[in-house]
Design a protein around this nucleic acid. Structure first.
Length: 671
DNA sequence: CAGTGAGCGAGCTTCCGCTTGACTT
């Protein structure tokens, strides 16, 4: 009997059926050993050591101390038992940095020594597996070293910086390479929104009486462009060097009246062909984004639904950064397309997609229907599960369909000294869009008639509306996950939990599916930016990845890298950092957020008062600020039952989770 | 004399990334 160890139980089941007799396939469920989270997790002889809290001996070449993870003792015992009777043990954890590390930890725990045999494969088919198990290789210790370096750096940074926040702010605050960079991105967006001053401009449109009619927009007067949102700075001022006409209500009204008496003469018609390519199959981040936008589902819900679909064999693995499809999947997708839309819907060759994110490890393929590509209606699913499966199914098929082609028409008209413009796109070959249209509807897009230069049409029904330039939008969870991926912050398995952490700490909250930064979040980000700017720098991770690659190649050692980043950079910054409570200017008001005695307060007019719970920076206006200062603030959140409800269980949970003393006290108090 | 309360001190919090259930609410 030969033993093959993989990470996921669902995968183990599938591989077991493919390899058949003579093989035992078991799952280790991810990492089995890790640095100790707390002192108590350490073996007794190490408890007194000065680096016990860290679990890393910086002075001994950053030697890590590993313990078996909570809840993994039984898994290890079972694997040990299985390995004992096996003639051969193959370590088949995922083909990436973390997977290599898992293989090494397993080799140590199972006592396989230097002879440990590692296998990897890119797809789960009989031929790929037979090929893989026939050619095991030794563990790649350079790659393991790269993972260990990543782990040690994250521990040093996280456990090094978090205590700064405990002394400056209090409570169980946290900071880390990923969560703090993410918080910084959100905080910057929030700040620029708060500081944003909208500018007003006018948009004048008029109906063109052609057949069929269409609407044209005034773009210039006497060849000087009309101001649009793009003409203004975020401070609401006209951009320098911009020559535009700014209308006011009166002028807009005059223009409106003028246009309705005029004829529009076609000055130019431009027709350009357009081609739209289908979007790539889903990765973790693009699935989150699409499900968030189309199905209005939050990140946690999508993960839960997708996990269930995966476990029941409907879709492939859900934590992936690769958009590529295996050959088997391409064939199945093409067959499904042909069956439903006929052979003309297929391009000659299957499309292959490559990742666009810099740090992709591509250990798995895209998220797609698994097995035989069950048609959604026949899958026996319902509700959100069905909706999500259909989304994945349609996107996968669409990715293998023909491009959509058509033409974009752009018409310029003149009415006296007024220049008008209209544009519209018409798809001729609908291609993949019959199944999955990823274009957001644009209000200016319309079907345009064929017109000739020199033709003139009556103008009627002119409308003038005042518009305001708008601040950069908040991120939805989906959009933010995409941003994290693009910036290389975090991994597919952690995008969701990073958002959870930021919410649990009270730095970020979700309102109407959008991510808002709380006053505490702004304070934490402000403090970190001042004291440890390295940590919130979004390029920090990108540079780390490059260095880890060099470690994996054997061009750099762990000690060299960590000496530079830790001893030479982060550690001195932590040493220097001030412990004074942070303050942040409220961008849109004459006030500051500050921390006093561990409480978030707002200071204005020489007074400082605690902020009501649940109050977000955007809720603060001249009026609400005055109410807060006078103690007359009546936020609905304070009186609402929900807020007290939400608080109580958190407290009980904390009591229950803390030491035995606390529960004894609790027991004594109860009748 | 018993019970209460202020004040003090000690101990705790925390990272990222890989996997699922087994638990509540």
């Amino acid at each position: 009997m030969k033993l093959l160890i993989v990470e996921s139980p669902a995968k183990a089941k599938k591989i077991q059926s493919l390899l058949g007799r003579g093989w035992t396939v078991r799952a280790c469920l991810g990492h089995v050993r890790d640095l100790p989270a707390r002192k108590e997790d350490l073996p007794e002889k190490h408890c007194a050591l000065p680096w016990a809290r860290l679990g890393v001996n910086v002075e001994d070449n950053y030697a890590p101390l590993y313990v078996i993870r909570e809840g993994k003792h039984k898994t290890i015992q079972d694997l040990k038992a299985a390995a004992k009777g096996a003639e051969q043990v193959l370590l088949a954890s995922d083909p990436d940095r973390e997977g290599e590390s898992i293989a090494w930890h397993l080799a140590v725990l199972l006592g396989l020594g230097k002879e440990a045999q590692r296998v990897t494969y890119q797809e789960i088919t009989q031929s790929a597996l037979r090929q893989a198990v026939a050619h095991p290789r030794p563990i790649d210790y350079h790659l393991v070293g790269a993972q260990e370096t990543r782990r040690v750096l994250d521990r040093l940074a996280g456990y090094g910086v978090s205590p700064l926040l405990w002394s400056a702010v209090g409570g169980n605050q946290s900071a880390g390479r990923v969560q703090s960079a993410a918080l910084m991105l959100l905080s910057q967006r929030e700040q620029s929104r708060l500081a944003f001053v909208p500018a007003s401009y006018w948009r004048v449109t008029v109906g063109v009486d052609s057949c069929p009619p269409f609407r044209a927009t005034v773009v210039a007067l006497r060849d000087v462009p009309l101001a649009t949102a793009a003409s203004f700075t975020p401070q609401g001022e006209l951009k320098p060097d911009v020559q535009v006409v700014q209308l006011d209500a009166g002028k807009a009204e005059q223009l409106k009246a003028y246009l309705e008496r005029q004829w529009g003469v076609v000055q130019a018609v431009e027709v350009t062909p357009v081609t739209r390519k289908p979007p790539a199959p889903f990765t973790t981040s693009t699935l989150q984004q699409a499900a968030n936008a189309r199905l209005k589902l939050g990140a946690a819900t999508v993960t839960k639904l997708a996990q269930a679909l995966y476990e029941n064999g409907f879709i492939t693995y859900i934590r992936t950064d690769s958009p590529s499809l295996s050959e088997e999947a391409q064939t199945l997708a093409r067959e499904a397309i042909q069956g439903r839309f006929g052979p003309t819907a297929l391009p000659e060759k299957a499309r292959q997609y490559a990742t666009r994110s810099a740090n992709a490890q591509e250990a798995h393929e895209a998220i797609r229907p698994a097995g035989k590509f069950l048609i959604p209606e026949d899958a026996g699913l319902s509700g959100d599960e069905l909706a999500l499966y259909r989304l994945i199914y349609d996107r996968t098929l669409a990715s293998q369909m023909r491009d959509a082609t058509g033409e974009k028409t752009s018409i310029t008209l003149k009415a006296g000294q007024v220049t008008l413009h209209a544009s519209g796109t018409r798809l001729i070959e609908k291609g993949f869009t019959v199944l999955y249209d990823d274009q957001e509807a644009d209000e200016d897009e319309q079907a345009l008639p064929r017109v000739q230069v020199g033709e003139s049409f009556a103008l009627r029904d002119a409308r003038a509306e005042e518009k305001r330039s708008s601040a950069p939008a908040r991120y939805t969870e989906g959009k933010f996950v995409q941003l994290m991926e693009r910036a290389g912050i975090g991994r597919p398995s952690t995008y969701g939990s990073t958002l959870d952490t930021l919410q649990k700490r009270g730095y970020v909250t979700v309102r109407q599916r959008q991510l808002h930064v709380t006053p505490l979040g702004l304070l934490i980000a402000g403090y970190l930016m001042r004291q440890v700017p390295q940590l919130v720098d979004t390029t920090f991770t990108a540079q780390m990845e490059r260095d880890l690659d060099r470690i994996a190649e054997g061009e750099l050692t762990r000690t060299q890298y960590l000496d530079g980043v830790w001893k030479g950079n982060l550690a001195p910054a932590i040493e220097r950092a001030g412990r004074t409570p942070p303050r942040v200017q409220v961008p849109h008001l004459d006030a500051v957020f500050e921390v006093r005695a561990g409480q978030v307060q707002v200071r204005a007019q020489g007074r400082s008062v605690p902020l009501p719970e649940g109050l977000l920076p955007e809720d603060l206006t001249e009026k609400t600020l005055a109410d807060v200062l006078n103690g007359t603030f009546k936020g609905k959140r304070i009186k609402r039952e929900a807020s007290t409800k939400g608080k109580a269980p958190r407290k009980t949970r904390r009591t229950a989770g803390s030491s035995g003393k606390a529960s004894a006290r609790k027991g004594a108090r109860s009748p």
